[in-house]
Design a protein around this nucleic acid. Structure first.
Length: 478
RNA sequence: CGGGGCGUAGCGCAGCUGGUAGCGCACUUGGUUCGGGACCAAGGGGUCGGGUGUUCGAGUCACCUCGCCCCGACCA
């Protein structure tokens, strides 16, 4: 009893200190380590394996929808970065610069890419001539650097991994369709693979990407009631095309500017998985993204036949799921806690008593529920259980999100909710940035998005009382 | 970048008014154990974040610096 208490103390309870809980999980589950450069993290094998699974699923989706992977340089000459005015202005404060090669000062300093719009644009200007060259749908997996003031593992790091898609289209309509198609891919991915419900919508003028006409976002709600922007998709119109002179000849022989999009998802998603699903025992991974879906813990390993049986099970299950086995001489209880902390969806126990009865014990991480299953039907039972865990994790995340989404019809009500109930607040807005800024000031929340699914809560702006244009999701954000 | 906190073994910590570093866990070896963090025995591991100063002597005092954590402003 006393011993068990001690283990629990290694992870700070989330209700006591959510931020501490988060960093405890990241460390204890061996997802990352700190490095000697501020804000840069080492992604350890277990953390990287999660990222690889994210990549695998998304990459396949991008390819299915006609995107090609490329690789752009890590450095951007200062002059190139400056070609699009809004874009530079947005990124300038967080750019890292290379000024020397060896001992020699460079004639032009190079920026370490914070994002690669300018590089793609420069390239597109060269390779696009005719409508036959369109659309161009490129994607790259890389890391980018943004000199952040405050950093936290996965949520905000100086260098982070991501994918950035960059496309060029003949028409505005096509570009808009691409922007929304990608947003839908992101949303489906979050819901179906990460078991994380999202709100799809558009960013306000104030919150949109530097240089874009429109930014679309998926917003998710963390366990502590703070919002996390989990993926964005931008429609650039012809802003960049004009700045970089990306033109093509259409069917009528007329010279036209292309219409562009860009979109990205990052390692921040791992932070989202932690904060949406985790509990006081540790990480809780949705089966579809878990590096190991089933962990076999044999009981009384030294007893006749246990190891053999466990290995045999591993072999069988490996045909239907990602399975691991722990045959170290640690105590079973130690292993139970360890793999719960690591969020492995299913634990399989097999001991002498089970072998006698031709059964195993399956324990699900999300609910802790144990079931006894005949060894004869192990493959189907494991697959069923993983499916069930996947969908019930989405359901409980959705319940949590809905329970923590409020509506406000008056400013008093709005402020009251903002200050006392962490979560999303739905409220009407006139569309004026001044009101958005005022709400930040008086209530401490920012606009998360103008959701596609609009509701009419009232007909006046919550802030100024003028006619409302949109219903907006508001909240505190990471 | 402002306000607060913390840096001592892999992790968590102790180390008093200055006297040359310790505890628990982890690790290694051998043995016994195994259905919710086992036990016995024997071992290994430290430029006390870094620098400068005060002092006969600094983990301990002063100043500087770096890093981490938390709360705000900025951002994926």
């Amino acid at each position: 009893m006393g011993k068990q208490k001690k283990f629990v103390e290694e992870i700070t309870p989330m209700d006591e200190d959510f931020a501490k809980w988060y960093t405890d999980i990241v460390k204890k589950a061996e997802l990352t380590d700190y490095s000697s450069v501020k804000g840069c993290m080492i992604i350890r094998p277990y953390g990287y394996a999660i990222w690889e699974n994210i990549q695998k699923v998304l990459d396949q989706k991008f390819k299915e929808t006609g995107h090609e992977n490329v690789y752009m340089p890590m450095f951007i000459p200062e002059s190139l970065l400056q070609k699009e005015k809004d874009h530079v202005k947005g990124f300038a404060p967080e750019v890292a610069w290379v000024t020397h090669g060896g001992d020699e000062e460079l004639t032009e300093k190079l920026c370490v890419r914070p994002t690669s719009e300018t590089l793609f644009c420069e390239h597109y200007a060269k390779i696009i001539q005719s409508y036959n060259d369109l659309p161009k749908k490129y994607n790259q997996w890389c890391s980018v650097v943004r000199w952040e003031k405050t950093t936290r593992p996965f949520l905000r790091t100086t260098e982070f991994l991501w994918q950035e898609g960059h496309t060029a289209h003949a028409t505005e309509e096509e570009a808009q369709k691409e922007t929304i198609d990608i947003l839908n891919i992101y949303a489906d991915f979050c819901e179906n693979v990460l078991a994380m419900p999202v709100v799809k919508g558009q960013k306000t003028e104030k919150e949109k990407f530097a240089g874009a006409n429109a930014t679309y976002t998926i917003e998710s709600l963390m366990h502590d009631g703070k919002a996390l922007q989990s993926g964005t998709s931008h429609n650039f119109g012809d802003n960049f095309a004009k700045a970089f002179n990306i033109q093509y000849t259409d069917k009528n022989g007329e010279l036209k500017y292309v219409h562009q999009t860009s979109w990205g998802m990052t390692t921040r998603l791992i932070g989202a998985i932690i904060m949406v699903h985790g509990d006081d025992s540790g990480l809780k991974l949705p089966p579809k993204i878990a590096p190991t879906q089933v962990m076999i813990v044999p009981i009384a390993l030294h007893k006749e036949g246990v190891t053999e049986k466990a290995l045999e099970l591993k072999d069988r299950i490996s045909k239907v799921a990602r399975v691991g086995i722990d045959i170290s001489d640690k105590m079973p209880g130690w292993k139970f806690n360890e793999y719960e902390m690591k969020g492995i969806p299913v634990r399989l126990e097999i001991g002498p008593k089970d072998i006698e009865k031709n059964q195993v014990v399956l324990v699900r991480r999300d609910t802790g529920k144990k079931t006894f299953v005949s060894i004869d039907e192990i493959e189907t039972k494991v697959v069923e259980l993983l499916d069930d865990i996947q969908s019930s994790m989405l359901n409980s995340a959705r319940e949590h999100r809905d329970e923590n989404t409020y509506t406000a019809a008056t400013l008093d009500e709005f402020i009251n909710i903002a200050q006392n109930k962490p979560g999303f607040i739905k409220a009407m807005w006139c569309g004026d940035t001044a009101c958005e800024e005022k709400l930040k000031e008086v209530a401490g929340v920012s606009s998360r998005c103008i959701p596609f699914k609009q509701e009419q809560i009232s007909d006046k702006c919550i802030c100024c009382g003028r006619d409302a244009k949109h219903m907006v999701y508001w909240g505190k954000a990471y």
